[in-house]
């Protein structure tokens, strides 16, 4: 019996596919998420919209919050560490969380280096804005990728941009002649072996969810139709008027993402979505997605 293998790390992400991972800050939220059909929850002290509003330094959550949520639900529990903060990651592993998100939503601890994730038994998910960034994180040991979008904005435009960038990148690599692959690896700053793999298979070697801006059932289905394996919803649920109903609707829209009649049905009577911020009004240094490299 061997634990912590690449197969079991990437395998859990495969089991999450077609599902919705929801940010929760309390036990009550976690139960609402599970009852709505979330396939996992992200345990946090504050949702990204509140982190953005509060300013200051955002760190790993209080272990008491994380443990309470782990106790309250039977679905996998994820938690965030700061970019490059491997001791926060070690701490989360000791707590027994099921997945660690090395996340740009928290204030980076290291401006040059991400965590060396191969050393951990608990798998990592990391954000990316394009294929090169995705492959760099996978090279460091991320067993799951999510496109970053712009967390806490409720604006889907960045999520679309990043997911399209990843799929465009894959399509480009797939059709390149072999002699151009090394130059492509150099240009995108990605490990050559992974560039070769994407060229051969025409897909990412790990599961890729969409994140950062999903606020409605249609947003979730949009990301699925664009090729995401599933979605993260951060502030979009618990910053809306009716979290429970919205959570259920987003879950259904994610499963039935190709069925417009179902999406129409579940989108009815949800109350107001989160107010959100038009990302065009954010200054470049307010964009969370630009954290990490």
């Amino acid at each position: 019996m061997e634990t912590g293998t690449w197969k079991v790390k990437t395998g859990l992400a495969q089991m999450l596919k077609g599902g919705v991972i929801m940010d929760v800050v309390t036990v009550e939220h976690a139960k609402i998420a599970q009852d709505a059909g979330a396939c996992a929850v992200m345990a946090l002290e504050r949702v990204p919209a509140d982190i953005r509003a509060a300013g200051g330094v955002a760190r790993m959550s209080d272990p008491v919050v994380i443990e309470a949520i782990m106790k309250a639900v039977s679905i996998p529990v994820m938690a965030k560490c700061r970019i490059g903060h491997f001791v926060e990651a070690q701490t989360l592993q000791a707590l027994g969380v099921d997945y660690i998100d090395e996340s740009e939503v928290l204030t980076p601890a290291d401006e040059h280096y991400h965590v060396w994730k191969h050393d951990f038994k608990v798998p990592f998910v990391c954000g990316c804005r394009d294929l090169g960034e995705a492959l760099r994180r996978i090279g460091e040991g991320a067993a799951m990728i999510r496109t970053k979008g712009e967390a806490g904005s409720g604006d889907i435009v960045e999520a679309v941009r990043h997911l399209r960038a990843v799929t465009d990148g894959i399509r480009d690599l797939e059709h390149k002649p072999q002699e151009e692959l090394m130059a492509a690896a150099k240009d995108m700053g990605a490990p050559f072996e992974l560039v070769l793999e994407v060229h051969k298979t025409g897909q990412l070697p790990v599961v890729n969810f969409a994140a950062g801006g999903v606020a409605t059932p249609a947003d979730a289905a949009l990301m699925m139709q664009l090729g995401a394996d599933g979605v993260f919803v951060g502030s979009g649920i618990f910053k809306s008027d009716n979290p429970s109903e919205r959570a259920k609707a987003v879950v259904k829209a994610t499963t039935h993402y190709q069925d417009a009649a179902i999406i129409a049905e579940v989108s009815k009577n949800l109350g107001g979505a989160m107010a959100g911020i038009n990302v065009k009004q954010l200054k470049p240094d307010e964009m969370l997605a630009s954290r990490g490299w």
Partner: peptide, 12 residues
């Protein structure tokens, strides 16, 4: 979840 959480997941 008979074996525990993800870090107990295994291959054999």
């Amino acid at each position: 979840n008979a074996f525990g959480r993800q870090k107990e997941s295994f291959e054999t």
